[in-house]
């Protein structure tokens, strides 16, 4: 646990917030705390407290299990999407950074085209092509997070490939698989992990935005964005419908960003800092 001892209080609190959020969600979902998220069990728009800890929505569904399901959906979608991004961006970035040449140019130009689209416009475009739903949300997150990550991985790969130990390996006659697995990836893993945390927070925001616009997760399934969207109709009469998932969204994004900053300080050498 040397990493934990080296981390400052901000990084630690970010990690703790994130862990608590995930733990509560997993426990809440697995043990079905608060009952069935889709069952209409109570009065409509009941305020928090008593039998329904976070109140009920416009159909009389208890908000607590819906919140558990919502956090679960959002985190799961974003995490899967970011893992896909990480794999693709690493392949593209290393190809562009290590091999360079025309392959690198093609990758860079493609990525720049993607980069030039405004986030939410790109997401709506994807939803229009794929059709609204979880697939559209995941595809959007991947397409939105891949440009930055590819560029950062490429920049890091360029730096690492110029180091003497890579040259030595080439002189020794090592093939590209060995150089990739033994030299490049271990020295890029820090950069990839740091970019992954940032991509995760972007992913959560994209899910929220897309579901809020109605192109993301479809009812009756809940997600943080979907909960906020459904609750926004009753903002004045039942503000808790928006406030609770809103706060969770903010906490999740903040915690991930703060943790990502700490991870960067710990993993990335100082001279690479300007790349981020």
């Amino acid at each position: 646990m040397t990493g934990w001892r080296k981390a400052d209080w901000l990084t630690r609190s970010g990690l703790v917030c994130l862990a608590v959020l995930v733990l509560v969600t997993v426990v809440g979902t697995v043990f079905g705390i608060g009952g069935d998220p889709d069952a209409m069990v109570g009065p409509r728009l009941a305020p928090p407290g008593g039998e329904f800890l976070l109140g009920t929505d416009e159909l009389g569904r208890s908000m607590l299990p819906r919140l558990f399901e919502g956090i679960g959906t959002t985190l799961l979608l974003s995490t899967v999407a970011v893992l896909v991004t990480a794999v693709l961006a690493t392949l593209l970035g290393v190809a562009a950074g290590y091999y360079g040449g025309w392959l690198g140019e093609v990758v860079l130009r493609l990525v720049e085209v993607l980069y030039s689209f405004p986030t939410i416009v790109l997401a709506i475009l994807v939803a229009a092509v794929v059709g609204p739903g979880q697939t559209a949300t995941m595809c959007s997150i991947v397409l939105i997070t891949i440009p930055l990550m590819t560029r950062v991985v490429r920049a890091a790969a360029v730096t690492v490939s110029e180091r003497d130990y890579v040259t030595s390996a080439v002189i020794s006659g090592a093939g590209w698989p060995r150089i990739l697995v033994r030299h490049l990836l271990p020295n890029l893993s820090g950069t990839i992990a740091v970019q992954g945390t940032y991509a995760l927070s972007v992913g959560i925001l994209v899910e929220g935005g897309l579901s809020f616009l109605g192109f993301g997760v479809q009812p009756p399934q809940s997600s943080l964005g979907a909960l906020i969207q459904q609750g926004s109709t009753y903002l004045l009469t039942a503000p808790w419908l928006v406030i609770v998932p809103g706060i969770v969204l903010i906490v999740a994004v903040l915690a991930i960003n703060v943790f990502g900053d700490g991870l960067r300080d710990g993993l990335e050498p100082r001279e690479a800092r300007s790349l981020v």
Partner: peptide, 11 residues
């Protein structure tokens, strides 16, 4: 080869 930079000569 034995190269220039001691800090980057080894992975």
């Amino acid at each position: 080869a034995v190269l220039q930079h001691p800090q980057w000569s080894l992975n």
